[in-house]
């Protein structure tokens, strides 16, 4: 099971946002994606998750192209993304936010709801247990019944991770999981990602906080002006001349 993007090209008008990007996240891999603002990182996530359609190239999950799948189908196939600015179902409670991210229930259509109530109840019990486990894992249990809009920024990041977990993902695309999060909670999020990764979930992580990121990931890829300019171990990548040029504008 690998996640791969191959030769992705994306143009916005005359501007080439992505110019032949190829990158592979192996099964259970932990890969950081860095690069200056406007390098195309978020565009790459949008394409991988099915929010935008690339002009050329392919997104493959286990060698199988995902291009025909819309965003909800990709999430169900095990490729789940989070958002840079954390989003939540604001009027649902924290627990309901998690339950909402467990699609594929009989009770999702009105016929199933009214004519197979027993089955609906059994399925609900199963996902309710998973939601409880996820709440405990992310230490969100104390706020489980609060409306999600009341969470702090850091808690919302955890909730995003929790929503992703409810989909039983193979790969999670995290868009700046540490942005705007206090250092204590960053440690918490890092620890959770490590645990989940150890359990076999692959991560591709966009992050500007290089210090926190390099503590977490053994492999870094650098995107600059729509191209991958370096990838490998953090030490090698961060001392790479082209990377220093791109990041620091040649100052260093």
């Amino acid at each position: 099971m690998t996640l791969e993007v191959r030769d992705i090209v994306m143009n916005f008008g005359g501007f080439r946002a992505l110019d032949g990007v190829s990158l592979t996240v192996p099964a259970g891999g932990l890969v950081g994606l860095i690069g200056p603002n406007g390098a195309g990182k978020s565009t790459l996530f949008a394409i991988m998750s099915g929010f935008q359609t690339q002009d050329a190239g392919a997104v493959l999950l286990d060698g199988r192209p995902l291009d025909a799948l819309a965003a909800p189908a990709r999430a169900r196939a095990g490729l789940v993304r989070t958002f840079q600015v954390p989003r939540e179902f604001r009027n649902l409670t924290v627990r309901q936010n998690l339950l909402a991210a467990a699609p594929g229930q009989t009770g999702e259509n009105l016929l199933g709801l009214f004519f197979q109530p027993g089955r609906v109840a059994r399925e609900e019990a199963v996902i309710a247990r998973r939601a409880e486990e996820t709440l405990r894992l992310l230490k969100l249990a104390p706020v489980a019944d609060q409306p999600a809009r009341q969470l702090s920024g850091g808690q919302k990041k955890l909730l995003e991770l929790g929503r992703a977990l409810m989909l039983d993902p193979r790969f999670v695309l995290l868009d700046e999981p540490f942005a705007g999060v206090n250092p204590v909670l960053i440690g918490e999020i890092v620890a959770r990602i490590r645990e989940l990764n150890a359990a076999g979930i692959g991560f591709l992580i966009i992050e500007h906080d290089l210090e926190a990121l390099t503590r977490l990931v053994p492999y870094l890829a650098v995107l600059d002006r729509g191209r991958i300019i370096a990838q490998g171990g953090p030490d090698a990548v961060l001392t790479d001349a082209a990377v220093r040029e791109a990041y620091l504008g040649g100052v260093a």
């Binding site: 998750s49 909800p72 999430a75 789940v80 958002f83 179902f89 009027n91 909402a100 989909l167």
Partner: peptide, 19 residues
């Protein structure tokens, strides 16, 4: 739950696997 989720944030619902 899905209806209220879509009402709150349609894009978030889609990445949560809701059609």
């Amino acid at each position: 739950r899905q209806m209220r989720a879509v009402a709150d944030d349609r894009d978030l619902a889609r990445v949560s696997g809701i059609r």
